[in-house]
């Protein structure tokens, strides 16, 4: 299994230059927007970008974990909505702790459901999570009756949205801890190495005595849980359980992951993909907001960015 890791750490020259292209791209993007609208690089806006990035980085990390296994999660956005509603309802009736537990429980359940469909039954990940997304979407809107769940306990917002430590917002701390944990898991644990191996070659993994099904179930469970954590942070920020909170998040998280360099062919990408990709997408949408690009047109840019990064990052060998 370590073979896979070492081979990946000795890439060709073009690949060696690649890690620098995205950070440079982010800086360039920031400067271009700043030329049009100086507020883009104001301290307040940069802090705002950091905060926004932390939410998206968690979702992108979730997407990265399943992308490693050649998978995909189309149900991420609606899971965020369902967690927001479910946690909100639990919180209003039984307090913040119950809400957090309910949120994580729901997210884990959706992740496990996806994992079972994909790992145990062997359904194609794209279609399985597409099917799940409709089930989860229906649950989110039925549960809430279409209305926001409010008011939430003030403590929730005070701790997870307004709270800060050493001048850094709670959401950023949580994102840092989550990314660090996932990064360590991928690099140093058996599960992490198995995720890479199953993604690189399910057959080789089976030959090595690994059960791909179990690894896939774990991957989707982690993906779900991360979506849940992100959803709780977003819910704290909006101050209510929102049945449409997930909106564009599926697309944005996928965009962030592939822009960051996660490959759809699996076995590649890691936590830096999630972080840099999320930063890029956040700078892009923040900049477009400040220079007043229409929200619908932003969707066009997002689509174009996904296609472009797929073309640039493609693996010529695969169909």
């Amino acid at each position: 299994m370590t073979d896979v890791m070492t081979r990946r750490s000795a890439p060709a020259l073009a690949d060696r230059l690649k890690p620098f292209s995205l950070p440079l791209g982010i800086v360039a993007l920031l400067l271009v927007f700043a030329l049009i609208e100086p507020r883009v690089i104001s301290g307040a806006n940069l802090r705002n970008i950091a905060l926004q990035t932390s939410f998206l980085a968690i979702f992108a990390a979730a997407q990265c974990v399943v992308l490693l296994t050649r998978g995909f999660d189309l149900s991420l956005g609606v899971t965020v909505s369902l967690v927001s509603v479910g946690a909100g309802m639990a919180m209003t009736s039984a307090g913040v702790a119950a809400g957090l537990a309910a949120g994580c429980g729901i997210a884990l359940a959706v992740g496990l459901f996806n994992g079972l469909l994909i790992g145990a039954i062997g359904i194609n990940a794209f279609v399985a999570t597409l099917g799940t997304s409709y089930v989860v979407m229906a649950l989110a809107s039925t549960l809430s009756g279409g209305f926001p769940v409010a008011p939430l306990p003030p403590a929730f917002n005070a701790i997870f949205a307004q709270g800060s430590l050493f001048g850094i917002r709670a959401a950023i701390w949580v994102a840092l801890i989550v990314l660090l944990a996932i990064g360590l898991m991928l690099r140093f644990t058996t599960l992490g190495r198995r995720l890479y191996l199953v993604g690189a070659s399910a057959r080789a993994a089976t030959a090595a005595g690994i059960r791909p099904a179990a690894v896939l179930i774990a991957a989707y469970a982690i993906c779900g849980l991360l979506a849940g954590i992100g959803a709780l942070l977003l819910t704290a920020r909006t101050g209510s359980g929102e049945p449409n909170l997930g909106g564009n998040l599926t697309l944005e998280s996928i965009a962030a992951a592939v822009v960051g360099g996660a490959k759809l062919t699996g076995g590649e990408g890691g936590i830096s993909s999630a972080l840099l990709g999320a930063l890029f997408i956040t700078v892009l949408s923040n900049g477009m907001n400040l220079v007043q690009v229409d929200g619908y047109i932003q969707q066009v840019f997002l689509g174009a960015i996904i296609v472009l990064s797929l073309i640039l990052g493609r693996d010529g060998a695969r169909r």
Binding site: L251, L264, Q299, L302, G303, A304, V307, L310
Partner: peptide, 9 residues
């Protein structure tokens, strides 16, 4: 992925 992105656009 291609058609997901073009659908969004």
């Amino acid at each position: 992925m291609v058609t997901l992105a073009t659908a969004s656009a």
